[in-house]
Simulated scan of single mutants.
Amino acid sequence: MAERYDTIGVNYAELRKPDDRIATAIEQALGPARTILNVGAGTGSYEPANRQVTAVEPSTEMICKRGPSAAPVVQAPAGDLPFDDNSFDAAMAILTVHHWPNKAAGLREIRRVTRGRIVLLTFDPSHRPWLTDYFPQLAILDEAQMPAISDFARWLGPIRVETLPVPHDCSDGFLYAYWRRPRAYLDPRLRSGSSSFWALDGIEAGLQALSDDLRTGEWDRRYGHLRDLPVYDAGYRLVIAE
Results as ranks from 00 to 15, higher is better:
residue 147 P to I: 01
residue 75 Q to A: 13
residue 133 D to I: 10
residue 92 M to V: 08
residue 125 P to W: 06
residue 99 H to N: 10
residue 50 N to P: 02
residue 47 E to W: 00
residue 56 V to M: 01
residue 50 N to T: 11
residue 85 D to M: 06
residue 135 F to H: 06
residue 105 A to L: 11
residue 87 S to E: 04
residue 153 A to P: 14
residue 152 F to L: 06
residue 134 Y to Q: 04
residue 154 R to S: 13
residue 81 L to D: 00
residue 150 S to I: 00
residue 105 A to Q: 14
residue 152 F to T: 02
residue 148 A to V: 01
residue 117 R to P: 02
residue 110 I to R: 02
residue 55 A to V: 03
residue 78 A to T: 05
residue 126 S to M: 05
residue 73 V to L: 00
residue 70 A to Y: 00
residue 145 Q to L: 15
residue 153 A to R: 15
residue 93 A to R: 00
residue 60 T to M: 09
residue 131 L to T: 02
residue 123 F to G: 01
residue 134 Y to N: 11
residue 114 T to Y: 03
residue 142 D to F: 15
residue 155 W to N: 07
residue 104 A to R: 15
residue 137 Q to E: 14
residue 62 M to H: 10
residue 67 G to S: 13
residue 61 E to M: 15
residue 152 F to K: 04
residue 109 E to L: 05
residue 107 L to P: 11
residue 53 V to N: 00
residue 116 G to K: 02
residue 48 P to C: 11
residue 72 P to I: 00
residue 85 D to N: 13
residue 75 Q to I: 02
residue 112 R to F: 14
residue 111 R to D: 05
residue 74 V to W: 11
residue 85 D to L: 08
residue 87 S to D: 01
residue 75 Q to K: 13
residue 89 D to H: 10
residue 47 E to S: 09
residue 140 I to R: 14
residue 52 Q to M: 09
residue 154 R to Y: 11
residue 77 P to T: 00
residue 146 M to S: 10
residue 148 A to G: 10
residue 92 M to Q: 07
residue 81 L to I: 03
residue 50 N to L: 09
residue 51 R to A: 09
residue 86 N to M: 10
residue 142 D to T: 08
residue 121 L to T: 08
residue 98 H to C: 12
residue 158 P to F: 06
residue 63 I to K: 09
residue 125 P to Q: 03
residue 98 H to N: 11
residue 70 A to I: 00
residue 48 P to L: 07
residue 95 L to H: 15
residue 65 K to E: 02
residue 61 E to K: 15
residue 90 A to N: 06
residue 76 A to G: 07
residue 68 P to E: 13
residue 56 V to A: 01
residue 69 S to Y: 13
residue 85 D to R: 11
residue 136 P to I: 05
residue 60 T to H: 14
residue 134 Y to W: 15
residue 55 A to G: 08
residue 131 L to W: 08
residue 69 S to N: 14
residue 131 L to N: 02
residue 47 E to Q: 12
residue 154 R to F: 11
residue 126 S to H: 11
residue 93 A to S: 15
residue 49 A to G: 10
residue 49 A to R: 13
residue 55 A to Q: 03
residue 139 A to M: 09
residue 101 P to T: 04
residue 106 G to V: 02
residue 141 L to K: 04
residue 55 A to M: 05
residue 61 E to G: 13
residue 139 A to P: 05
residue 133 D to F: 14
residue 84 D to N: 12
residue 52 Q to H: 10
residue 52 Q to E: 12
residue 87 S to C: 09
residue 140 I to M: 13
residue 103 K to S: 10
residue 159 I to D: 08
residue 140 I to P: 05
residue 65 K to Q: 13
residue 58 P to D: 06
residue 54 T to K: 03
residue 158 P to Y: 10
residue 109 E to S: 06
residue 75 Q to R: 12
residue 94 I to P: 04
residue 111 R to Y: 07
residue 69 S to D: 14
residue 56 V to T: 03
residue 92 M to Y: 04
residue 116 G to W: 08
residue 72 P to W: 04
residue 83 F to L: 00
residue 72 P to V: 01
residue 111 R to C: 03
residue 125 P to F: 06
residue 117 R to D: 04
residue 116 G to H: 04
residue 143 E to W: 13
residue 69 S to E: 14
residue 141 L to A: 12
residue 53 V to T: 03
residue 64 C to G: 14
residue 69 S to F: 13
residue 140 I to W: 15
residue 70 A to R: 02
residue 154 R to G: 12
residue 48 P to M: 08
residue 51 R to E: 03
residue 159 I to A: 10
